[in-house]
């Protein structure tokens, strides 16, 4: 009913399977409710009223990794935390993406020392790096837009792998 009447007005839409799926994936990419340090506060700002990440279908943070599509590593990754992050990542179902938010998560930042892993990419594969200490919410949104662009470019042949 609703669908057919709408379709009647719009005519027929044709698309490829890839585009339809990728559109769906970018439209509701739920992040994991996971914050580490200072960047997590900026991530919260991004989700709160002023910057409002729900514009991109990301208002819902899932506390369980089983229900999340995206993990935003927001903050410094310590040697003690590293195995935990790996396990969280392993628990997430495919397809999954990783945004490394901030200098500390991307390369160790100012903490070139014994306690900090020099980049979360030593533990989990990262799709998008966001620079800044901490990045502004606009920067994080830009990082997520970049990720969306990447997802939209995925091909059906890649999914098989």
């Amino acid at each position: 009913m609703g669908v057919s009447s709408k379709l009647g007005n719009l005519g027929v839409v044709t698309t490829t399977l890839e585009e339809a799926v990728n559109w769906g994936r970018t439209g509701a990419m739920w992040p994991l409710l996971f914050g580490l340090a200072c960047c997590a506060i900026e991530m919260m700002s991004t989700q709160a009223s002023h910057y409002d990440m729900s514009r991109f279908g990301m208002e819902l943070n899932r506390a369980s990794p089983r229900q999340a599509d995206l993990i935003i590593v927001a903050g410094r990754v310590t040697r003690k935390m590293a195995p935990v992050i790996r396990q969280l990542y392993d628990q997430m179902p495919h397809p999954k993406w990783v945004v490394s938010m901030g200098d500390c998560a991307s390369c160790g930042g100012v903490y070139n020392n014994y306690a900090i892993v020099q980049g979360v990419d030593e533990i989990i594969p990262v799709d998008v790096y966001v620079a800044g200490c901490p990045p502004r919410p606009e920067q994080l949104i830009h990082g997520i837009m970049t990720l969306h662009e990447k997802v939209r470019g995925e091909r059906i042949t890649d999914w098989a792998n």
């Binding site: 340090a37 903050g75 100012v110 903490y111 020392n113 306690a115």
Partner: peptide, 11 residues
Amino acid sequence: VGFLHTGIEKN
């Protein structure tokens, strides 16, 4: 605790 121990004092 210690999952966020950053070594700031040592740094």
